[in-house]
Write a protein that binds this DNA or RNA. Structure first.
Length: 278
DNA sequence: CTGTCCCTGATT
DNA sequence: AATCAGGGACAG
């Protein structure tokens, strides 16, 4: 489900519910693929902890505790983090809620729901990291434009793979997923299947700009809700209404009227305009 | 570097 | 019944 914009929004909206609040009770489901740290260990460690900061790196979230320990979170495809008792009715409390943090009276609980269980939760004792984070390339928005341009250019010289596959590689660039890769390539006017080696330096700069613009714009509009994403207050995003190619197979390009095509690249569904992108 | 798999549900 | 889904690890 979530790419960088959705994770960033989740982070910002969770802050008021988490920061400075002591965890008084922890709810979990049974051990599964979802728990990198077992539910019982998680409970033991989280009890009495207090989040002092939330960090986002790519699509990952880290809750920094006052103790110096950290909670590592990833939303996978269908993960949802949300605050209990939001005004709307979209949040569900069902068998798919795998982790719940409770706080002292009057303070709403925070739920982590994930239908497909591709999401992850792990307890990181002070000083310990996770290889998934260590391997990440620079974050698509935490990195300044010209520095990111240079990095992507250098990285693109080292191999010859479809540019879309390159964008999706989190060890190259952290945060872009299937939607925003397609959208960024549209705005930069590059075909998703084009080899990295055939993308000029100028085009790589345009792509860097397009990627950062698309991500920032999505955050501004509340992220993309295709099916599962809801923000911590339960609202859908609105950025899906601005998509130019993603999910628009068979519809006309908004620039040139050509019919948008859908192909498969690296096992992922890929959308582009055959006229605007070459 | 591509394919396969993890898991569940909605849609065709 | 088959296909598809905002992700990513791992095998070959």
């Amino acid at each position: 489900m979530p790419e960088l914009p959705e994770v960033e929004i989740t982070k910002r909206m969770l802050e008021p519910a988490l920061l400075g609040n002591k965890i008084t009770r922890v709810g979990t489901t049974a051990p599964s693929y979802f728990f990198l740290t077992s539910p019982s260990t998680l409970k033991k460690n989280l009890l009495g902890e207090e989040t002092i900061a939330i960090e986002r790196i790519g699509k990952y979230l880290l809750l920094n505790m006052r103790s110096g320990h950290r909670l590592f979170l990833h939303l996978g495809m269908t993960g949802q983090l949300y605050v209990e008792g939001s005004s709307n009715h979209k949040h569900r409390q069902d068998k798919h809620v795998h982790l719940t943090l409770h706080f002292s009276r009057n303070k709403p609980a925070v739920h982590f729901r994930d239908v497909r269980k591709f999401g992850k939760v792990r307890w990181l004792p002070q000083g310990k990291s996770d290889p998934r984070i260590d391997k990440l390339g620079p974050d698509a928005l935490h990195t300044e434009y010209s520095q990111l341009c240079q990095h992507l250019w250098d990285a693109s010289r080292k191999r010859s793979i479809p540019i879309k596959t390159f964008l999706l590689d989190q060890s190259v660039l952290a945060g872009i997923g299937n939607i925003y890769a397609d959208e960024a390539l549209f705005f930069a006017g590059i075909r998703p299947g084009k080899s990295t080696k055939r993308v000029s330096r100028t085009k790589m700069q345009e792509l860097t700009k397009a990627a950062q613009d698309v991500l920032r714009r999505s955050i501004e509009t509340g992220g993309s809700t295709i099916r599962d994403y809801v923000s911590p207050d339960g609202n859908d995003g609105a950025n899906q209404h601005e998509h130019r190619v993603y999910g628009r197979k068979g519809l006309n390009c908004t620039k040139c009227e050509t019919v948008i095509k859908r192909i498969v690249t690296g096992g992922r569904s890929t959308h582009y305009c055959p006229t605007c992108q070459c």
